[in-house]
């Protein structure tokens, strides 16, 4: 693949067909993640300007059916609620302009109940702590304009403890830096308008060093490149206004090389099989870099900028689109 063509129609087709493969093994093993999968697929269609290809009413109904009595959302009917799937549910409803059908107070109570005295968040009632969950909580509350319900200073304090000597962030205090976790921490600080408190250039360089000579990005030192970091790394760089520090043409070529020419969809690495997760994150990367006239995606909320612009209470200081 040398002509750098983005197979837009094929990707749309690939995503729409995903929901029809109910006989596939993969469909069933990812059953508990269906809410995340739905968000990835739907948002990919948004970036490709094809959200109308989804069955809006059926999807909204299904999402709402996953809200549990405690206010949280599960990954599918009959599964346990979790912050990860709750954020996805809110993101889906928002893109369908259906937040008015959501029991917002119940969601807010759920999220608030998961904050711990040290500022961190449990992912669900069973107590796993991870900076990912902090991001989910903060993003949900800010989308619903309810950030005042939690202790924000404590959140920032906890995020600060997860910052490592190399400038990156891990999932817990002391845990190794990882680009995915760095996205969640930078995103949290951006939403809370506290980015000015960190050393931008140190983390900027750590993120920039994630680009390998093949143009792709990795998530940790000495790991190989993977398309999903076109989101985790690029969005972080974008939020701190350092997107121009990497070689964008080379990264574009890398993502383009990961497309499946036959079925559509984007894989983690060239020649691998595509999946919805990497399709979404590959498109996100291309969108952030401004290629192919894609719908612009916001680097902090991972939602189309035009969707977020409808929420007047948000102040997207990092987003010039």
């Amino acid at each position: 693949m040398t002509d750098n063509q983005l197979l837009k129609e094929k990707h749309v087709e690939y995503i729409i067909n995903l929901d029809k493969k109910k006989e596939d093994f993969e469909y069933w093993v990812t059953e508990h993640l269906r809410m995340n999968g739905m968000y990835w697929g739907l948002s990919a269609l948004s970036i490709l300007n094809s959200i109308d290809k989804m069955n809006k009413e059926e999807t909204i109904e299904w999402v709402l059916s996953c809200q549990q009595p405690n206010g949280g959302f599960s990954g599918n009917n009959q599964h346990d609620d979790h912050l990860l799937s709750t954020l996805s549910a809110v993101q889906i409803l928002l893109q369908f302009d259906a937040l008015d059908r959501l029991n917002i107070d119940a969601v807010v109570d759920y999220v608030v109940s998961l904050q711990q005295p040290d500022g961190s968040f449990f992912g669900d009632r069973w107590g796993e702590v991870d900076t990912r969950f902090t991001y989910c909580a903060v993003s949900i509350l800010s989308l619903l304009n309810k950030l005042d319900k939690i202790n924000q200073d404590k959140v920032v304090e906890f995020i600060g403890k997860c910052r490592n000597f190399d400038g990156g962030y891990g999932c817990l205090p002391g845990a190794e830096s990882h680009a995915g976790q760095t996205f969640t921490c930078i995103g949290t600080l951006a939403i809370l308008h506290r980015l000015h408190e960190i050393d931008i250039d140190t983390i900027g360089w750590w993120l920039c060093e994630r680009q390998l000579p093949n143009g792709g990005l990795n998530g940790r030192p000495e790991k190989s490149s993977d398309v999903c970091y076109s989101w985790w790394v690029l969005s972080s760089l974008s939020a701190i206004d350092r997107l121009h520090w990497i070689d964008q043409d080379k990264l574009r070529s890398y993502i383009i090389d990961c497309q499946d020419q036959e079925t559509g969809g984007i894989a983690d690495k060239p020649q691998d099989l595509p999946d919805v997760f990497h399709t979404f994150f590959g498109l996100c990367g291309l969108s952030l870099m401004g290629y192919y006239n894609l719908e612009h995606i916001d680097p902090v909320y991972a939602l189309p900028t035009k969707t977020l612009r409808k929420l007047k209470h948000l102040n997207l200081t990092w987003n010039k689109h």
């Binding site: 360089w205 920039c208 680009q211 121009h244 520090w245 990497i246 070689d247 080379k250």
Partner: peptide
């Protein structure tokens, strides 16, 4: 060279 943008900055 891959980080040329950074070094130019």
């Amino acid at each position: 060279q891959i980080h040329h943008k950074y070094w130019e900055f």
